[in-house]
Design a protein around this nucleic acid. Structure first.
Lengths: 336, 336
DNA sequence: TTGTAGGCGTTATCAC
DNA sequence: GTGATAACGCCTACAA
């Protein structure tokens, strides 16, 4: 009698069709929201679906439709080294949460350079409908090429022109941070920049330069870091070793600022009394530093969700601007 | 002549077969490493594969084989709030990197509670071969049930018995941290514990108790936090407000310890001179605190890769112990 | 060892 | 509006 009870696998579209007394095609139409279906039929099918607990088989669906409903989030391994950086965690979170409200799936790829071929094949092998590339390095070229074969969106401006990306305006962010220092009366403003092989590193340096130029101040006190706390500490030591007094510092990341704070303290310099410091990133480094850092907030969770949004539109064939800039804002705390 | 050039889609198994002059079955066998194939044939097929740049179509493969070669990493949304916690980023990284050396794919799910039904269906809908659940909360029940339908491995001991999980020995970690305080001559040792609805919170509290009991010391100075810096700061304030002097503190997380440091400093207490503090987590909070924290290192990247390893074995039908404990180690710095 | 044939669960193209 | 009927690309008995 109840042959259908205790079936092994999940119910199929075919079974739903039988239960609803319609054809498979019709069930498929209902499932995919086709406009040409009678209300009665929709009701019947929906009921059957609920009763049976039907869930479309993704594999079958993508085999037939040639779309996977999956996107990849690629994190080049050299970037993964910076995984500890809360920035990446936030972006990933943003992506995942945005996707949660769609029926797309997120496939996370840590792309080791030694197996880049494998990653490339995976991406081109029709496993995903599009890719998100999270990296600020100049070695993005391979991925830029990929964007000719499928929708690709970068997080952070890639070192290439014709690519879709969403980023904060790093130049403007750095400029506003530096301008804040100027407004507070600082006249000798140094910077601890990010690495020169990352667009964000370069852009923030440029913003610092612009602000100083506009204020008629010299822009010669510059040391490079790699965004991490230790590099910030080391850079500050080098700055101090120049024996060239300064009363303000723009650090390209809060992590570096927190490192710089250590070197400053060691040197017997007080913040903000002796030197004021402003940075970028409103993460817990900024929040928990001593003193808490005045910094430029770049909403990274939002960057992630925006990236996902842009990619999905691209996949959907919509017309999307190549560049999406996320606004930043200065948050004042006690370091200046 | 060259009909095959400029084809639209990716090459199929069928085309490889034709190019190699064998049947599709044989190509399939070669691709899947079947033992019963002649060396010559393998060579021929492999050559054809390389020449054509063939990549198996995942959808077709899983439709036919009923295996997806994908696993899910589920992060309950309440956990996602703690996303800023470097612990999670590390675990995710570990999982992703382990998977990179296999042909499994990682599907990252942020499971909002309001859509838990959706997540459940996704998991049960045959989209993945197994799932990793990252959570320390007691609301894991739903996922424990899931483990009856497919391989599931938890990160952190779930509040249930019959589940596979990989975790650090939180009791032992807390005990060794506390014992260290005892060895350093502290006689009045307080604790800032984690939340009581997380196994790790409870276990670390228990470890603290055990160490004190063994040393014949009272275990009454206890305040609860939620693993975040602010909660640690607040807990320390409450501890201080008790007006019950103490010379040692075991904080269940480095983040809370860093918060506690702030309250301690405000109260004019010096670390380590007046009170020694030990915590768990060797993250940058521990490394960059002032003073740097003596702490118990729990290798979270490794926990992630181990979780993936266990799950893959489970999927492979291997016999795996339900519990995998990752060793921890004490790293001495300047806070005691 | 290798080939044949049928099927995996959907979608898509047609007729009706 | 709805229903047959091919694909979609691969796996897997089973046969040879």
């Amino acid at each position: 009698m109840t042959l259908d009870v205790e079936r092994a696998g999940a119910p199929t579209l075919e079974e739903v069709a039988r239960a609803a007394g319609v054809s498979r095609s019709t069930v498929s139409r209902v499932v995919n929201g086709s406009p040409n279906v009678t209300a009665d039929v929709i009701t019947a099918v929906t009921t059957a679906i609920d009763k049976l607990g039907y869930v479309p088989n993704r594999a079958a669906r993508s085999l037939a439709s040639r779309r996977t409903h999956a996107i990849a989030l690629v994190i080049p391994e050299n970037t993964a080294k910076f995984f500890a950086d809360p920035y990446f965690a936030s972006v990933i979170q943003g992506v995942a949460m945005h996707l949660a409200s769609t029926d797309y799936t997120l496939s996370l790829l840590i792309a080791s350079e030694t197996e880049s071929e494998k990653t490339r094949r995976y991406l081109q092998g029709g496993n995903v409908d599009g890719a998100l590339i999270l990296s600020h390095h100049s070695d993005d070229q391979a991925y830029v090429q990929l964007s000719r074969r499928m929708p690709v969106v970068f997080g952070g401006r890639p070192m290439s022109d014709d690519a879709y990306y969403v980023d904060v305006d790093n130049v403007a962010a750095a400029r506003s941070a530096t301008e804040y220092l100027v407004r507070r009366g600082k006249t000798r403003i140094a910077t601890i920049s990010g690495p020169h092989d990352m667009a964000s590193g370069l852009d923030r340096l440029e913003g610092w330069r612009q602000a100083l130029a506009a204020a008629g101040l010299p822009a010669d006190l510059h040391e490079e870091g790699d965004f991490t706390p230790p590099s910030g500490e080391a850079a500050m030591r080098r700055l101090l070793a120049r024996d060239e007094p300064f009363d303000g510092v723009f650090a390209a990341s809060a992590q570096m600022a927190s490192g710089a704070l250590i070197a400053l303290r060691e040197a017997g310099l007080r913040v903000p009394e002796d030197v004021g410091i402003v940075s970028i990133d409103n993460d817990y480094f900024a929040q928990n530093a001593l003193p808490p850092l005045t910094t430029v907030d770049q909403p990274s969770v939002r960057q992630g969700s925006t990236m996902a949004d842009v990619l999905l539109r691209l996949i959907d064939g919509q017309d999307v601007p190549r560049t999406t800039i996320i606004p930043t804002s200065l948050v004042e705390r006690a370091s200046v």
